[in-house]
Design a protein around this nucleic acid. Structure first.
Lengths: 208, 208
DNA sequence: TCGAAACATGAATACTGATTCATGTTTCAT
DNA sequence: ATGAAACATGAATCAGTATTCATGTTTCGA
């Protein structure tokens, strides 16, 4: 879609209609939460406003007090997922100075998060088609943090040399694929097993 | 004799309404090709039957001579992508007995394919939401081939030990992420650069 | 306490777009 | 050469659902 007046440092996307009262705050939260469940379960297009408001226990028109369109509630969910998952991983890796250890801890935290929030995970994936801008923002913010971490680690000799951008995408691809195993394919293997194998691959490669 | 439901090991999904004449064959091909372009460009939901038939140069009703529903044409495109991409990679790796070399060649072939067929690539990704069964079939067929190759290579000592399933998903995740860079994020880096970095990671890992 | 702003309702609107169908036209085996 | 099957047409149908709106109800600061 169009991005008029695209300020570079614009992180916030027009958070209008902020509720003014506690009651409104609660209602908006209820709608967002219902939307997460309904859209996560049925997908964006099969989820109707009626289902969402009914699940939230409010009238259909109430939806439009807090969201301008159906797409807007979706975007907010993608934003929320971005904040939550970055926060989660940051928490899990903050204290770890060794990059490879941080890699392992971050991957574990990510997989635990998606296991706990499968609806949010699916929504982010679907954003690729429903709201490409939100998807790009989510993904780019992630990649940027990853890249700078890898650059630093390579400078400090903690890891070998190699293009940090490509490496960041590859590592994110691994995390995504394992997350998909859990959420989409219903893989029941313990997360530690997945992480152990993946970490060995990331650290040592396939060579004998 | 020509029993359409004949073969025992047929996991294929009812390829009914096969055209009976050359004319019909050509029309169906035109619709499929138009659908690939229109759905690839606008996404499944924003693509209308009218756009597809108009692009194909036939009347709207003609669509339903060859496809029972809108979803059916989508499924056929996913199937086609699966066939094409497996064939492409198989061709590129057939003659290579060393697994690591095959990995490199296969990744290159895959990325070249998605660069040449961005519409098909997007359609497969969207299948996750539009036709989960088709998506699962596509992905599983891929993973199975991957896994058996890794199992063999580990047995022969060409690569180190490690759970082949998890490794297969991780490697597919890398390939997908790089494909997405090219198709979705418009990354213009030469494929060989991407492959060089990714291959080094796959072969040697991040350890210094 | 009061009234203006915020919030809530749900029926009515408005529009899109998939699918059908009655009616022609073309193909091809005989 | 011929007629039955296959193919083609595009206007009409039909259902779903996002969004609006006129009308209440609740909140909360002054």
């Amino acid at each position: 879609m169009n991005n008029p007046a695209g300020n570079a440092a614009m992180s916030q996307r027009t958070p209008f209609n902020k509720p003014k009262t506690a009651r409104g705050e609660a209602t908006k939260k209820a709608i967002l939460s219902a939307a997460e469940r309904v859209i996560g379960a049925r997908g964006y297009n099969d989820a109707s406003i009626g289902q969402i408001t009914s699940e939230a226990g409010v009238a259909q028109g109430t939806f439009y007090i807090y969201f301008k369109t159906k797409e807007e509630v979706f975007s907010e969910l993608v934003l929320e997922m971005g904040r939550l998952v970055r926060h989660t991983i940051s928490d899990a890796t903050q204290a770890i100075s060794n990059r490879l250890e941080a890699e392992q801890a971050g991957l574990t935290a990510f997989l635990e998060f998606v296991q706990a929030h499968p609806d949010l995970y699916r929504i982010v994936q679907e954003a690729q088609f429903v709201d490409p801008d939100a998807y790009r923002e989510y993904y780019s913010a992630f990649a940027e943090g990853y890249r700078s971490g890898l650059t630093e680690a390579a400078r400090d000799g903690q890891i070998s040399q190699g293009d940090p951008d490509t490496r960041a995408w590859a590592l994110m691809g691994i995390a995504r694929a394992l997350g998909e195993q859990i959420v989409v394919f219903g893989n029941k293997a313990p997360i530690t097993d997945l992480v152990d194998t993946a970490y060995d691959l990331i650290a040592n490669g396939l060579k004998p």
